[in-house]
Design a binder for these strands. Structure first.
Lengths: 189, 189
DNA sequence: CGGCACATTGATACCGATCAATCGGGGTGG
DNA sequence: CCACCCCGATTGATCGGTATCAATGTGCCG
């Protein structure tokens, strides 16, 4: 992804949707995906977006000719896996308020590391329905949770952008620990 | 993992535990984990186990000297990611009965591809508490769900082994689609 | 100006958590 | 060898958080 947002998702037989990941600029969709015979989920853009495609041959040449690039891509993939695990933890053991707060913390930090944040707000082009489908809840309930977080003075969400009103409080509500994003430098070789 | 079972897990400040993955023989814990500075979760064996460790240098030599091996490992990692996504879907959008059934389907198939299943049963060395922590539910509730599945004639779980009473019914309850495990052959190069 | 998607709020139902008690079996110490 | 104990399994009663159903508000776009 060069610009814009996208998401991975799956639709169940019952018609409900579950979003499994948000893709932001700098994220790679599928490094080795071509190794598998079949795609097991769908990907969709959420905003107008710009996407780069790299041919299998080019990618192979890049990876074998530039070990540092290869290493960076593997690191990125490890981070993505860490994010997925964090989502599993959220869905399994966090209440809805904690879940929402946690996701916002994550998205804020990810946006910040790619330079897409303002002082205490950032562009969040997600409808409440999308957030609900990402967090395993209902659009109605997400609305109530957002209201609660707003009244608590932790954060507010309005027309495509989120504002962090009180970072400390938000982090505390979420029980957020940023270590899984591995923003601190990777181990030197 | 050469023998035995293990799991990835995280403990929250509140003391609750969430299991994020089960590792069975043939699963690799951490291919490139050394690229990151810090581990963001814990791993624990669930049975007596045998584990192989490969030095960074050996691994690097193996991967660069044997492209087929490297490809196989990347495929395996992609499958692991697919499994994580399936867990996210389960936790987000499946009821507790569906979740339990889905996990059993997954574990049965994974056990079967490595030759660890009997005719319609397989060794499942997981207490109900462990299952609960993997599925984001309570041990009490998992017990009731298991009873329900047993009475429905779908599956039964007893002292370390699970029995599939009615595969079709179980798959139907779970809404299980095995494509995410990618057991069908990978694409030929 | 009309329509449509999204946001918001209220009332009610239900799934799964929680609290509590009992049971069963295998290992351990006396 | 037996009694005890402890952990995991099981069952019941109750509580609470989210889903569900329903209605209304609001802003954007054609």
């Amino acid at each position: 992804m060069l610009e814009g947002w996208a998401c991975r998702y799956k639709i169940l037989p019952s018609g409900t949707r579950q979003i499994m990941a948000f893709l932001m600029p700098g994220d790679a969709c599928d490094l080795h995906i071509k190794l598998l015979a079949e795609m097991d989920h769908s990907i969709q853009t959420l905003t107008p977006a710009m996407v780069a495609t790299v041919s299998r041959a080019d990618m192979q040449a890049l990876m074998s000719g530039h070990p540092n690039v290869a290493r960076a891509m593997y690191s990125a993939q490890l981070v993505d896996e860490g994010i997925m695990r964090a989502w599993i933890v959220s869905m399994g053991r966090r209440s809805s308020v904690e879940r929402v707060a946690h996701l916002i913390c994550e998205l804020y930090l990810r946006a910040r590391t790619i330079g897409l944040t303002g002082d205490d707000e950032f562009a969040l082009p997600l409808s409440q329905l999308l957030l609900a489908d990402a967090l395993g809840m209902t659009a109605v309930h997400i609305n109530r949770v957002l209201k609660e977080l707003r009244l608590a003075g932790a954060m507010a969400l309005a027309r495509g952008s989120a504002t962090i009103l009180d970072p400390v409080k938000l982090i505390q509500i979420a029980g957020f620990n940023e270590n899984y994003l591995h923003r601190r430098l990777r181990k030197a070789l």
